[in-house]
């Protein structure tokens, strides 16, 4: 798997547009933004107000993951990653390169290596983005002569790390489910644009599945049908977040009448992850490579 990952990394890292524009856009974008913030802070006192430096806390760097997890902003935030995944999977058809690599290794390993590459890129890009945001705010507040709390005691750092890992994990998992379907679409359509379009649609539809469940319950005059929303990834990811941070279930009243346990939500999310990746593996196992 290490050599397969190395092969994927070589491909993506040497494709300027692919990694440069779709993945490194996050830290590079943050760097560009904080360069403006720092320069503006030097020359204008209004910048302190405009950029919200008064009251900035370094522990807020974990908010960078909201780019991927908070609807509706995440629809735009996930777009580069969806395009990356679509290129990663459908690019092999468009370049006619599957035929070079599928006889040399198992199809499952080839697909899993792509998911691993995606995961490493996303984690690296957002970790780098977090560092840039933290340092950027620190430099700007320092120039403005403002404090940049809280003091980095062991307890604060420990709590921050826990919160950071939770947010990163949940954002990553929710993105992984969506990109798995984008990968599935890329394999079916064998087109990069097909993967992007379908991934984009799923990004919009999935958080709004409760509307579909509500519509079904009205259509069939069965109030229980709305409870189907309990199986949606976004609901369960929200529920896990609520349990870990506030030690209680997510309250979706009046849409959902029941509260879902942490264990159930973890199981449902795990099923979505395993199921969506398994779907991609199954499709590729059975697919004829004709290009």
């Amino acid at each position: 798997m290490i050599k397969l990952f190395r092969a994927e990394w070589k491909k993506t890292a040497n494709h300027r547009w692919l990694a440069g524009f779709l993945i490194w856009i996050f830290p590079v974008g943050a760097l560009a933004f904080y360069t403006i913030v720092v320069v503006a802070t030097i020359f204008s006192e209004e910048a302190i107000e405009n950029f919200g430096l008064n009251g900035a806390v370094w522990t807020d760097v974990s908010n960078v993951w909201n780019t991927l997890s908070s609807y509706p902003g995440n629809v735009l935030g996930r777009m580069p990653i969806l395009a990356f995944v679509a290129t990663l999977f459908a690019g092999e058809y468009e370049w006619g390169t599957w035929k070079n690599i599928t006889p040399r290794n198992s199809r499952s390993a080839l697909i899993l290596a792509k998911f691993l590459t995606l995961g490493v890129y996303v984690v690296l890009a957002f970790a780098a983005m977090s560092v840039i945001v933290g340092l950027g705010n620190g430099i700007a507040t320092s120039i403005a002569g403002l404090p940049y709390p809280p003091a980095a005691t062991g307890a604060v750092v420990g709590e921050f790390l826990g919160d950071y890992v939770l947010r990163a994990g949940l954002a990553f998992v929710s993105t992984l489910i969506v990109v798995s379907f984008a990968a599935f679409a890329a394999l079916i359509t064998r087109k990069i644009v097909g993967g992007i379009m379908i991934g984009f649609l799923i990004s919009i539809i999935e958080p709004n599945l409760w509307l579909a469940c509500l519509g079904l319950s009205k259509l069939f005059n069965n109030p229980d049908l709305i409870e189907l929303y309990r199986f949606a990834p976004s609901f369960n990811i929200g529920n896990i977040n609520e349990w870990i941070r506030f030690n209680h279930a997510l309250d979706m009243a009046p849409i959902l009448s029941t509260h879902v346990s942490l264990g159930s939500s973890i199981a449902v999310v795990a099923l979505w992850i395993v199921g969506s990746i398994a779907l991609v593996l199954l499709l590729f196992q059975r697919q004829d490579i004709t290009s």
């Binding site: 050599k3 092969a7 070589k10 040497n14 494709h15 070079n100 006889p103």
Partner: peptide, 27 residues
């Protein structure tokens, strides 16, 4: 094997293309 026309990653050099194939096949 060469199947139909030989096709490669157009954005990689010839040597890098062979490196990718070597890594995939554990060559």
């Amino acid at each position: 094997a060469i199947v139909e026309q030989a096709t490669f990653y157009p954005f990689l050099t010839g040597a890098k293309n062979l490196e990718v194939i070597a890594d995939v096949g554990d060559h």
